[in-house]
Design a protein around this nucleic acid. Sequence first.
DNA 1: CACGACTCCTGCTGGC
DNA 2: TGCCAGCAGGAGTCGT
Length: 277
Amino acid sequence: MPELPEVEVCRRGLAPVLEGGQIEGVVIRAPKLRQVIPPELANLLPGCRISTVRRRGKYLLLDCRRPGVEGCLIIHLGMSGNLRFVPSDLAPGKHDHFDLVLADQVLRFNDPRRFGVVVWQAGPPEAAELHPLLATQGIEPLSDNFTVDWIFAANSRRSGPIKPVLMDSHSVVGIGNIYASESLFRAGISPLRAANRISRARYALLVDAIRQTLSDAIAAGGSSIRDYVHSDGGAGWFQIQVGVYGRAGEPCLRCGAVVKQVRQAGRSTFYCPGCQH
DNA sequence: CACGACTCCTGCTGGC
DNA sequence: TGCCAGCAGGAGTCGT
């Protein structure tokens, strides 16, 4: 379910509980998600302390170590993944694929569609980026590196429509199907417009829109982290005011034109033909 | 290189 | 009510 804001909200919910805590055990129930969950986690992780819970794109990074073992547990929630703390004695349910057993509770990973990932990268925290899944990740949209100059140059040779380009995690990480549509709506740019046919001035609007949209979503989700941590894990997700996503056929809240839905690269795109050009 | 199609998987919704 | 097609917030791989 997660795009960058949801993963960040998840990280903020996990960090205060996990950081400094010790892993007592590991349970692997479904060996194969998008990749096989490494069986050796059962030997590596018990006894490890988690120093930091980080995020890179839509990946969660748990830095773990104990004498003789140092590495990073890398978790991706895929489309339908979900992490929640449950009581130690709660029986696992359907699609509960992976448990991190802590002293007084369990961090449980549930993922019906199994597009998620749980893998291990040995080495110090800075080595995590060497993992093949992380090595090709693009820049963070909430970092100082994400500028008008950067995106204008990066997209200068991309002739395809801007919306799928925004969703390319090898370019910019974290922007999924919903926030791509919403950011373009806020910037007044058509999702169909070729990425290399957008002016620098309009890219400035887009950079701001992306930053603002993601930040708003994090703020909205962050307000319910307490709920997230000990409830169903769904609280706090996608709570921003939606401009166009899922509103096909309804009037645009800004100009009243009918919101359109089209298909791009196999994904639904929503936009307002009245105020996006 | 850049792009689109295809792929992995389960579950829900809407039409008949 | 049952069945089936289509679609769902991701992203790697492959062919062009």
